[in-house]
Amino acid sequence: MTTDIVVMRGVTRRYGRLEAVSELDLTLRAGECIGLVGHNGAGKSTLIKMMLGLVRPSVGSVLVLGEDPAAGAAARVRRELGYLPENVALHPSMTGTETLAFYARLKRQPVEANAALLERVGIAAAARRRVGTYSKGMRQRLGLAQALLGNPRALLLDEPTSGLDPALRHSFYEIIGDLRRNGAMVLLSSHALAELEGQVDRVVVMNQGRKVADGSIADLRRLASVRPKVRLRLPRAPRAVANGADCWAGWTQGAGGVMEFACDEDALSETLRGLPAAARDIEIVRPSLDDLYAAFQKGAA
């Protein structure tokens, strides 16, 4: 059994003259949780739709579980996939139970298991109400429940947590964590990198249809070469604190005696050792994921 769940080679997808995805290579393995990050219109949804076989690549090949998802044998592949579309749309006149039963039958899963699934995503109490009366969070939970039907080997979640409150988001990631421990591949797309911190093993950053970065968040930090900053506060003017003009070379002075210095990771301890005793509130400011993301977007543009 292969551990490569999704293999994309040289994939390009054009819509008219617009290239939604260009020359993309991507391999997603079992047991991995991957964050797919990019602006709106960066090609994330197109990429996911190609994995589902809803959209065929203009150039290149897509293999999901060793098969072409857009070909005749796709039914077998799709039984092993779970998909949560962006802004999941469900039939408003059906109840939660009916919705899940409909999708379970299509996936040839026993309908009896649905009650437990509704319990797991936390909408068992509303299961007999019509989906039209659900809040956005409840619809999203029901959407996740249908994606979880039949313990899929690959979960493709398109912006699953956008518009969810933090408590809901937390329980969402808990469920995703369980799945990954069971060996499923989970792909999460998001337009904010910061949201994925601590949730994903690997991040793929997309910009205008191209993959601009692929690696763990630590890898991305290294790649982006956004340097950490040493920040401190001085009780008096810099020259009065430390003698020698070049001691503060490269430092920028902010309001209220705050000084900042950007340096490489390797030079950090050296810089700290050289600080005068009068320095207060010393902190190391690492680039936030948003800074990192901005750096990648700028670099690729």
Binding site: L54, A75, V88, A89, L106
Partner: peptide
Amino acid sequence: DRGTMALLLAYPVA
């Protein structure tokens, strides 16, 4: 239009 078709076609249905 409503987006329900994309989800339906992601299921094992031709």
